[in-house]
């Protein structure tokens, strides 16, 4: 399956929710939509799901534009999608098993798979309890189970970590890894930088409906102009001066000379070259400090 959005714009009254978004979703990738609340992440997901009709733009699935093709084509596409909405909710007076069985019937999935998924998301014991007694994390796990029930080609997860405990997070990591290794796609939105750092193959930063940046976390660091800081503790500062001079020349990066250390601001691609240079100079005590993704986002969101 080939999936991309092309020039998608959505306006709700005076609010421009999405403005000319172009994105590709290659197979085997976990794509993360990042950005502040109200940025347009959920709206973009809703467009992919066919829940919101864009004003302009195309949603291309295997070359077919589903926006132009209409509701029937979109309905067919939804056979291939699993969805976990933000703040997922269910019929409170039904049990987790009954809710799961409804979605299984709707998806044409057998009972064996229902029990397999309930076990996978850690709800086997609580399956016969009414949903009204579930914690937020349990509801989230039930939602995740429903999303993966029919092993969809595209998994859309809106803020999936909300309310998840450690067990739930482990399940989520396992699902993301499984989908990636099976060559399927995951599109998720999150504010959870740890999730992005650990599992995102590609991050799309959206703010006020506009795509600010796209790329791997390292690409974003580069785009944000934030470099990796390497600190080298030195015993002999005379030797430090010589080393600083040669590093500055070889790597073409500024080198600061401190009281008992030298510091370099380098792009992530140069980290191994610097460590090799240190090693051949017989220098130990090298410390690499990556700028946090919070700083990267702050910088990217500030950019015009």
């Amino acid at each position: 399956m080939k999936l991309s959005v092309d020039g998608i714009s959505v306006r709700f009254g005076a609010v421009l929710a999405l403005s000319g978004i172009d994105l590709d979703f290659p197979p085997g990738e976990v794509a993360v939509l990042a950005g502040p609340n109200g940025a347009g992440k959920s709206t973009l997901m809703a467009v992919v799901l066919g829940l919101v009709e864009p004003d302009t733009g195309r949603l291309l699935v295997d070359g077919e534009d589903l926006v132009a093709a209409g509701a029937r084509a979109h309905r067919r596409f939804r056979e291939r999608i699993g969805y976990l909405p933000e703040a997922v909710a269910f019929a409170e007076n039904l049990s987790g098993l009954e809710v799961m069985r409804f979605f299984a019937r709707a998806r044409g999935v057998g009972k064996a798979r229902v029990h397999e998924v309930l076990e996978k998301v850690g709800l086997k014991e609580a399956a016969r309890r009414a949903v009204r007694g579930y914690s937020r994390g349990m509801r989230q796990r039930l939602g995740l189970g429903i999303a993966i029930l029919h092993e969809p080609e595209l998994l859309i997860l809106d803020e999936p970590t909300g309310g998840l405990d450690q067990q739930g997070l482990s399940t989520l990591w396992a699902v993301l890894d499984e989908w990636r290794s099976a060559g399927r796609r995951v599109l998720l939105s999150t504010h959870d930088l740890a999730l992005i750092e650990r599992r995102a193959d590609r991050v799309h930063v959206i703010s006020a409906g506009r795509l600010k940046a796209s790329g791997t976390p390292d690409d974003l660091r580069r785009l944000a102009g934030l470099t990796i800081r390497v600190r080298v503790a030195m015993d002999d500062m005379k030797h430090a001066e010589t080393l600083a001079g040669s590093l500055s020349q070889d790597l073409a990066v500024p080198v600061d000379l401190g009281e008992d250390e030298i510091g370099l601001s380098i792009p992530s691609s140069s980290v191994f070259a610097v460590i090799r240079a240190m090693d051949s100079a017989g220098v130990a005590g090298v410390r690499v400090e990556e700028p946090g993704l919070d700083a990267v986002y702050e910088r990217l969101l500030e950019a015009p």
């Binding site: 809703a46 799901l49 509701a71 029937r72 309905r75 939804r78 269910f90 429903i146």
Partner: peptide, 15 residues
């Protein structure tokens, strides 16, 4: 209002 409509409409079914 209960936020269950999105999940329901994400199924392959017409409105």
């Amino acid at each position: 209002e209960r936020h269950t409509l999105g999940l329901l409409m994400s199924l392959p079914v017409g409105r």
